[in-house]
Design a protein around this nucleic acid. Sequence first.
DNA 1: AGCGGAACGATTGTATACAACAAAACGATT
DNA 2: AATCGTTTTGTTGTATACAATCGTTCCGCT
Lengths: 248, 248
Amino acid sequence: MQSISDKSQSQTVKALLALRELVVSGELVPGERVPELAMVERIGVSRTPLRAALIRLEGEGLLEALPAGGYAARRLSIQDVFAATEIRGALEGLAARFAAERRLGEPELAAILETQDQIDALVASGRSGSETFSEYVPLNERFHEQLAELSASPVIQQQIDRANAYPFAAASGLIDIQIHLPDARKILLIAQDHHRCVLEAIKAGESGRAETLMREHARLAHRYLRQALEDQEAVAQMPGASMLRRTG
Amino acid sequence: MQSISDKSQSQTVKALLALRELVVSGELVPGERVPELAMVERIGVSRTPLRAALIRLEGEGLLEALPAGGYAARRLSIQDVFAATEIRGALEGLAARFAAERRLGEPELAAILETQDQIDALVASGRSGSETFSEYVPLNERFHEQLAELSASPVIQQQIDRANAYPFAAASGLIDIQIHLPDARKILLIAQDHHRCVLEAIKAGESGRAETLMREHARLAHRYLRQALEDQEAVAQMPGASMLRRTG
DNA sequence: AGCGGAACGATTGTATACAACAAAACGATT
DNA sequence: AATCGTTTTGTTGTATACAATCGTTCCGCT
């Protein structure tokens, strides 16, 4: 009963991705229960994989369990978003520290250094259009991913992945809006300098410095957000915007 | 701690508690797949709530998904346990900082101060038997819970809850073994002093100090663990001990 | 005897039927 | 007319039947 285009992925994965998209895109009103049958019809899977997706998304913090049963899209305050970013910063800081304490040599750092060089080249190219950013985002994600791997701790990596699932909190979650911001290019340069300094610290085994830098790096997201919040149009474009509680 | 024989609970909750217990108690061998049918028979629920429990426990990090399908109890290294403790410390540190930055007054702090007083009284009583510890554990858990609440951030609280689900990493997870340790009473005194200092810092709005202290407080668990690891008997008694990979 | 392949068995993934429950709507009574 | 009780309807919780898939074993072939 599966169509040809779906056969690559299981129904469970399909339900998870589709439902997450519905939540983050704001098609599901926060606070209102998500009717299983309606989702079944809309996504095209049966209740079983759909309910699996509901459970997983509750674990991710995108949904909340209702007391009467069932789930609803979670309502997030601006404070929640800031907290989530701080958490990601704390976790990535931990990852950086662990990496530094491992006393890594050139060979282990080769991969992430190459990513850094690629970003350097992109930033140095001077171009600053939307195509630059569309190249930047995957490279930036790769950098953060490689850093997490350097911690050599699956526990840390898993927690970082989880933190990235939060709307707004992901490392590249807010970069999309950056394009429209006045300081876009400047913040990009700063971010890349953070990357460089963190790698330096890791190479030198300066674990405390690595941790602090990585924490501060995450706080760049705060700046994006603050700037974006002054521009209602920009906020509306953000994935997960509809989950934000309006709190003046 | 809820008893497993709670008939009032739903099948889903029953399956979750029972399965978690089976994992942590080590009845399920790490790495080996957990057969659904066998668990169905053993726990006494149907496959549907059992599978819900499997999904949730994967999210908690106690189970890992097998590539061929199904799940297996996760295998943890000593490093994983240390990392999990660091994560908890980072999160509780964040909670302490947030609390400090909220400039809380006496009324908001009254509840946690009372808990602190109760622990003080218990520690000061001088008794040091197992009954003292059985009183201490719930009080200590309450303190940590109240601190998380003072952050006024549901995101932080949820993450801390999740971190506490990890074997060994929970705030009171290792206290049980403490009883058998030589420095038991001394560590207890130190822990209580940490609590006091953290509350002082929060009251004074010294957010950086509050964070640092709370992080260091979590590292007491490292000491417990290190001492316990020298005593094979003590290790065996720990919940989740069987999940530990023997690494020399 | 060794290797390949097909059939079998066991186990998970998926769909759906049924039960329990809660909320809402309707009607009867005061 | 308002309120309480009952019925009805919709929704989730649970159980189970069915499909797909993976590993295994056994047989036949080289």
